[in-house]
Amino acid sequence: MHGRSRPLSLDFSEDELHRYSRHILLGEVGAVGQARLRAARVLVVGAGGLGSPLALYLAAAGVGTIGIADHDTLELSNLQRQVAHVTARVGQRKADSAAEALRALNPLTTVEVHARRLDEAAADDLIPRYDIVCDGTDNFPTRFLLGDACHRLGRTLVSAAVLRFEGQLSTFKSHLGPPHPCHRCLHPEPPPPGLVPSCSEAGVLGAVTGVMGTLQATEVLKEILGIGEGMSGRLLLWDALDARFRTIRLRRDPACRLCGSAAPD
C-alpha cells in the first residue's frame, strides 16, 4: 500500500509544524503533502555515497519510515563521500551508523535497519514492506536484482549511479505498464565483469555522490507528493567537469525480456 492511499492524519504537533514549516508554506506540499510524507515508507538500499545524502534528506523532509539495507561495515576510505557517517563509527555496520545519523537528525522518523546482503530472498522479503525503493548500490548484480524485483513486486524504483566525475538518475515504474520502461529497457544485461570499473577501482569525486544522492531524494519526494514531472521514461546525465546536465528519453522496449510483450508472466 502506498503512502498516498493510507488514511492521512492532519493532526500535527507543534514540533512538527515548526520543523516542517518551510514545506507547509509551499502550495504544492502544504499540510496534506506533509501528511503524505509522514505516511510514506521508503527503502534505501546502500548506505554509502548515494544513500547517505539521500537518506538524510528523506529524514529531514519528514518521511515517516525509512528502511536502510546495507550489510557492509564502515571503513575510513568511505568517509570521503559517505556523509551520514563519522570517524568514530569506523568499524560499525553501515546500516547502524546511518540509522544513528537519521535518528539524531529527526527523531520523528522511524528508521528500520536491515543489515543483510540483498539477495533474491531478501529482496522478496523487504521490498513489499515499502512504497518506494531507492537504489544506492555500487555493483551491477545487485542493481539488476533490485530492478527485476521492483518490477515483479510492483514497486517504484528511483535509481542513481556515479563514477569519477559523472552521475546518472532515472525512475522506473514499469509495473504500471506502458509507456513506462524498466531498467532493462536501458541496459538489457549487466556488462561483462571488468568492462566498467567500480568507484574503488576508478575513483569518484566525493561531492558528485552528494549531488546525485540529493537529486535522488528530490525525485522520491516528488513521487510521494505526486508533484512535478517525474523521471520515468527519462535519464538524467550529469558531467561535473563540464557543469552540464543532459536529459535523454527512455522508451519501453517491446522486446524487453522483463517488461516487453514476450516477457514471462
Score class of each variant (00 low, 15 high):
residue 1 M to W: 10
residue 1 M to V: 11
residue 5 S to K: 13
residue 11 D to K: 11
residue 11 D to W: 06
residue 11 D to G: 04
residue 17 L to W: 09
residue 25 L to Y: 07
residue 29 V to F: 06
residue 29 V to E: 03
residue 31 A to L: 14
residue 33 G to C: 10
residue 36 R to L: 12
residue 36 R to S: 00
residue 37 L to M: 14
residue 40 A to N: 09
residue 43 L to R: 05
residue 43 L to F: 02
residue 44 V to A: 06
residue 45 V to I: 15
residue 46 G to W: 03
residue 47 A to G: 15
residue 50 L to E: 02
residue 52 S to G: 09
residue 53 P to I: 03
residue 54 L to E: 02
residue 56 L to S: 09
residue 61 A to Q: 00
residue 61 A to K: 01
residue 66 I to E: 01
residue 66 I to P: 02
residue 67 G to P: 05
residue 67 G to C: 02
residue 69 A to T: 10
residue 71 H to R: 14
residue 71 H to S: 14
residue 74 L to D: 01
residue 74 L to N: 08
residue 75 E to F: 00
residue 77 S to F: 05
residue 78 N to T: 06
residue 79 L to S: 09
residue 82 Q to G: 11
residue 83 V to R: 10
residue 87 T to G: 00
residue 88 A to F: 01
residue 89 R to D: 06
residue 91 G to Y: 07
residue 94 K to N: 07
residue 94 K to R: 14
residue 95 A to R: 02
residue 96 D to A: 15
residue 103 R to Q: 13
residue 109 T to F: 00
residue 114 H to S: 07
residue 116 R to P: 00
residue 124 D to W: 13
residue 127 I to D: 05
residue 129 R to F: 00
residue 132 I to R: 03
residue 138 D to E: 03
residue 139 N to P: 09
residue 140 F to D: 05
residue 143 R to Y: 07
residue 144 F to I: 08
residue 145 L to I: 12
residue 146 L to F: 07
residue 149 A to E: 02
residue 153 L to E: 08
residue 155 R to Q: 01
residue 160 A to W: 03
residue 161 A to W: 03
residue 161 A to S: 15
residue 162 V to R: 03
residue 163 L to G: 05
residue 164 R to A: 10
residue 164 R to V: 11
residue 165 F to A: 13
residue 168 Q to S: 03
residue 173 K to M: 13
residue 177 G to W: 09
residue 178 P to T: 08
residue 178 P to D: 12
residue 180 H to N: 14
residue 185 C to M: 04
residue 187 H to K: 01
residue 187 H to W: 14
residue 188 P to E: 11
residue 191 P to A: 11
residue 192 P to D: 13
residue 193 P to C: 09
residue 193 P to K: 10
residue 194 G to M: 08
residue 195 L to Q: 12
residue 196 V to D: 08
residue 196 V to A: 12
residue 198 S to P: 04
residue 199 C to M: 09
residue 201 E to L: 07
residue 202 A to R: 10
residue 206 G to P: 06
residue 210 G to H: 05
residue 211 V to S: 04
residue 213 G to I: 07
residue 216 Q to C: 06
residue 219 E to S: 04
residue 223 E to P: 07
residue 224 I to F: 01
residue 231 M to T: 07
residue 232 S to D: 13
residue 236 L to Q: 00
residue 242 D to A: 15
residue 246 R to P: 02
residue 247 T to P: 00
residue 248 I to K: 01
residue 249 R to K: 14
residue 250 L to T: 09
residue 255 A to D: 15
residue 255 A to L: 13
residue 255 A to I: 01
residue 262 A to N: 12
residue 264 P to I: 03
